[in-house]
Design a protein around this nucleic acid. Sequence first.
DNA 1: TCTATCTATTGACACTATGTCAGTCTCACG
DNA 2: CGTGAGACTGACATAGTGTCAATAGATAGA
Lengths: 215, 215
Amino acid sequence: MSYLAERRVEEKERRRAEIVDAAERLYAKKGWDSVTMDQVAKAARLSRALLYVYFRDRDELQFAIGERALEMLRTRFIEAVARHVRGLDQVEAIGRAYMTYAQDFPHYFDVCARFQAHEMSAQPGSNEGACAVAGDAAILVVVDAIRTGIADGSVRADIGDPMLFAVTLWAFTHGVIQLAMAKGADLARLGISIPRFGDNALALLRSMGAPRPAG
Amino acid sequence: MSYLAERRVEEKERRRAEIVDAAERLYAKKGWDSVTMDQVAKAARLSRALLYVYFRDRDELQFAIGERALEMLRTRFIEAVARHVRGLDQVEAIGRAYMTYAQDFPHYFDVCARFQAHEMSAQPGSNEGACAVAGDAAILVVVDAIRTGIADGSVRADIGDPMLFAVTLWAFTHGVIQLAMAKGADLARLGISIPRFGDNALALLRSMGAPRPAG
DNA sequence: TCTATCTATTGACACTATGTCAGTCTCACG
DNA sequence: CGTGAGACTGACATAGTGTCAATAGATAGA
């Protein structure tokens, strides 16, 4: 029966998703480092051994959460872009979207940060090409916005490669958010509030992309 | 005898340093995650249990390496500043120094990145105030350079708080290096070489700080 | 010199978590 | 039925962390 095999696959995907759900809840609550496979198994009401049927190891489970995180991020980027017409505004909106994303889903941002920081050597078992620099799909949204901006004149035309510019903007923004997320308290002690920090960074980035007479 | 107690303290510090040395070598060779207390103990020719006399736990050992890393970073910053007179040039030199530092001591940069990313909640047992945002001492060098730049006219005067600007520059630069370190291969695949990436970022940062008619 | 004592050092233990595997359970199909 | 494929599990082996009682070594004082 072909549609039985189909059902099997479907069931398998559901189980897998349930596991990721459970893992994600724990991740959000306690941080990845203190989530054990046992806890995940219990939360999903399965035996620990079964997790290893669906995921090669702990890292691959985190990787699965990462895929969700990147997908969500891309969605937010697209929504942000849709709210503006001028390219420069879109780029700024993307930056702001990244910030609110990090606030709304700290654990998602955490995965992104780990993907970004550790080699993440696309395990041979999984869908390899899925994640490159920072979720290709997401970065492409930025590139598009930049291209739009160059076309409508809101972004300086003399930036070189839009891809290079996009990756750089990404790195800048990521660095700012990461610092804000981890060191909010220390920043406060220096008289810097998170919103001020974020707004300032965003303004600087905007001025970087805008043509000479500031826009 | 007072000078005997003194000798004791000295010996203790030497031992401690030996342990950190061993740990650091392993860190540099294999990355912190795959360094075990056992390996450190063997490398230092001590029993594993003794490590716990000198360091509360594995994290505190890494922390000790972090102190060295931050000290080294500050040194590099100071050297970089000393090679220039105009504030803007000093700031740019600091950024470049951070990049070469990351190349020269990848494991030191790795510790910095972890300090920056994880709360690093200054353990009550150790010298707490030692590390705030990113090794206060290091960031102060940046602040000084910015102040110098404002004074000599090479840096836009209308940036607000120099501290805010310094922290932001730090975050930007850190983000760029982190991405370059971890994703060099993927960047290359996008046609972006590390040097180009770094130089471009540095140029952008410089243009951010320079007064309107680019300097 | 002998001994009390203090500190550095260690072997062995308890605990936690990971990943594996042989074996059990379930159920659609012949 | 009963059988075979795939879902599922209990129990094991391994590895690493942190702790503790006990040992070894040196020093000051009798």
